[in-house]
Design a protein around this nucleic acid. Structure first.
Lengths: 127, 127
DNA sequence: CCAATGTTTCGATAAATTCCGATATGTATT
DNA sequence: AATACATATCGGAATTTATCGAAACATTGG
């Protein structure tokens, strides 16, 4: 994938961040839309969006648009790379990541529309 | 090794840096002393030392003192971790890293004392 | 003890990153 | 067209990081 030092450094920078690493690990366990990511991780929607943008630039994930929703998943080309494998393997064992995954199951069960409305409400009542 | 999100993020930050990644890859191909690292990578000795400190804090390398020299190598406990394996695998393919390794062979052939004196001289003539 | 030398830490400025509310963009629905 | 809604981007103050010469520290050998 990346055959240049700078590119790999940029990719590493992308995951050298608590939220972005959690997002990557979360997406690594299955496709999600942006609002689901924001809801699962309990962060502002703009933060989720920015985290995903960086992960996209790093070449780790890709997006699939469906109407106004954007679904994100691990880029299959990257899935084979030793680097991503190592990162995901390291992340999988973390308690925080496991909790996020459990929460993702609940959120997925609700369906996308319900979740996204919930996010909107959370934003509004955020003071 | 690291069983906490923050620790892994700190480890990733340590290698999200051109010089530090090069240093890690270099040490990954065999033990070197600090002055050799500085000479191979053509950086000030203090930069090499700082890079190694971060890699040590990240749990990737350890040191072995021999007189006034400090030899650094990959921490054997870390060598087994998927994360480090992935990082080293990704780095190995980079042209810059391969050049560094070729240069390391030359520098190693000179022996430690000759190299370290050379570094001193380079510093002095650095204007 | 003193000088030489390898390494580490400090200092200080410049540059990059983080964070999230506000705003903009694009897409469906009516 | 107008509204609603999901996502993306912007602004910009606060925090962190990078860099490397200078100075401090540690070890060896006279």
């Amino acid at each position: 994938m990346a055959d240049d030092l700078r590119e790999i450094v940029e990719s590493l920078k992308a995951v050298s961040h608590p939220l972005r690493l959690r997002v990557l690990a979360l997406v690594g366990s299955g496709e999600l839309c942006v609002c689901q990511v924001a809801e699962v991780l309990q962060v502002p929607q703009s933060s989720a969006s920015e985290a995903l943008r960086e992960l996209r630039r790093a070449g780790f994930v890709n997006e699939r648009k469906e109407g106004r929703w954007v679904f994100v998943s691990i880029l299959s080309a990257a899935e084979a790379s030793p680097l991503l494998k190592g990162i995901l393997a390291a992340a999988r064992g973390l308690p925080e990541v496991q909790k996020d995954r459990a929460r993702a199951l609940e959120v997925k069960a609700l369906g996308v529309p319900a979740v996204c409305c919930k996010v909107q409400k959370a934003e509004a009542s955020h003071v």
